[in-house]
């Protein structure tokens, strides 16, 4: 099922604008992530798609060819996975998963067959007849997914599906969720504030900020060609190279770099593109060195007003207080013209 949003906005009582008019096109079977900091409107947008909130007048939501704007959540046939899972504690795993099918008034044999099918798909067989309270966080998450998916929804919506889990489990379940969602082959939208999660699971990521979609694209496109400093900062933690661009060079406190760009542009770089380089054009002082196993994270001062970080792969690292020469991978600097709207 495709999804098309046209001019969907949301103003809460007290004239609080949670969502500016948003347009969004999602293809059949596509998995899209809404990524942004808290308060950016991502959950509001998801709840509007679900039918749990009504958009301001003028907004239109289409599932395939159907205009579903006026339909309530009960009639909209979406599958929803809540942040807290919202599983029914008074029912077993099996009855939770079968509840949506029961609401469709299907014959019991058909419900049982479908529930078995989904239980097998989500590898929940050993837990099928357990009460919800007897499940771990990861198992609950799978039950929530199975319950949302069982009634064959038109679109699957997931609100921070991994945030209720502890950090160690989250990484493992992230990959599991990505595989499950692909196996479902269903159009899915999921909300997250975690860029790793968004990039690992989604075909396309919509980065949101202050009620707007700042940019939508594949994870690679967002990472390599962010449309605004906000996207650069949020996806991949780009750091500002605060200096003056003029005459084909970027003048920083710690030296100058050749850079083509309009005067008044802003420049950003990511830590993995900053290098220790004896012939580099910049000079900085080592402020901190952290050994992280695969690499060192080194924090430098004297190059930009804010500390600049670099990732150093090697068997040894310079010591704190040393003055070092620094280079930047050619072509890795992201420049934004002064007109670029920043959130």
């Amino acid at each position: 099922m495709t999804l098309k949003l046209t001019g969907v906005a949301k103003t809460f009582p007290g004239n609080i604008r949670a969502l500016a008019p948003v347009d969004l096109d999602i293809k059949e079977g596509e998995i899209v992530s809404l990524l942004g900091p808290s308060g950016c409107g991502k959950t509001t947008l998801l709840r509007i798609i679900a039918g749990l909130e009504t958009p301001d007048a003028g907004g239109v939501i289409r599932f395939g060819g159907d205009d579903v704007t006026a339909l309530s959540v009960i009639q909209r046939k979406v599958g929803m996975v809540f942040q807290s899972y919202a599983l029914f504690p008074n029912m077993s795993v099996r009855r939770n998963i079968g509840y949506g099918l029961k609401m469709q008034k299907l014959p019991k044999a058909e419900i049982d067959a479908r529930v078995d099918e989904v239980i097998a798909l989500c590898r929940l067989e050993p837990y099928a007849d357990r009460p919800i309270n007897a499940l771990s966080g990861g198992q609950r998450q799978r039950v929530a997914l199975a319950r949302a998916f069982a009634p064959r929804p038109r679109i699957l919506l997931l609100d921070e599906p991994l945030s209720a889990l502890d950090a160690a489990l989250r990484g493992q379940l992230r990959d599991e969720l990505a595989v499950l969602l692909r196996s479902f082959g269903i159009t899915a939208i999921f909300v997250t504030h975690d860029q790793t999660e968004a990039m690992a699971i989604a075909d396309r990521v919509a980065v949101m900020s202050h009620g707007n979609i700042a940019q939508i694209g594949t994870p690679e496109a967002l990472y390599r060609a962010p449309a605004s400093p906000f996207v650069a900062r949020f996806v991949g933690d780009a750091m500002p190279l605060a200096g003056r661009i003029s005459g084909g060079a970027l003048h920083l406190d710690g030296g100058a770099l050749p850079l083509e760009g309009a005067d008044g542009s802003t420049a950003y770089v990511r830590a993995e593109d900053v290098k220790l380089d004896d012939n580099g054009p910049l000079t900085g002082r080592i402020e901190a060195v952290t050994f992280l196993g695969t690499h060192y994270r080194i924090v430098l001062s004297g190059i930009t007003p804010d500390p600049l970080a670099l990732l150093h792969v090697g068997t040894s690292a310079p010591t704190v207080g040393e003055t070092v020469r620094i280079g930047i991978t050619p072509g890795a600097i992201l420049t934004f013209s002064p007109e670029t709207e920043d959130a």
Partner: peptide, 27 residues
Amino acid sequence: DLKTLEEGAASLGAPAWRRFIDIAVPN
């Protein structure tokens, strides 16, 4: 957290009276 439980039931197609009987009262 009845509100979220009810939203869950509503998203599965349960009208208000069913949510009262199936979700609110048993829990």
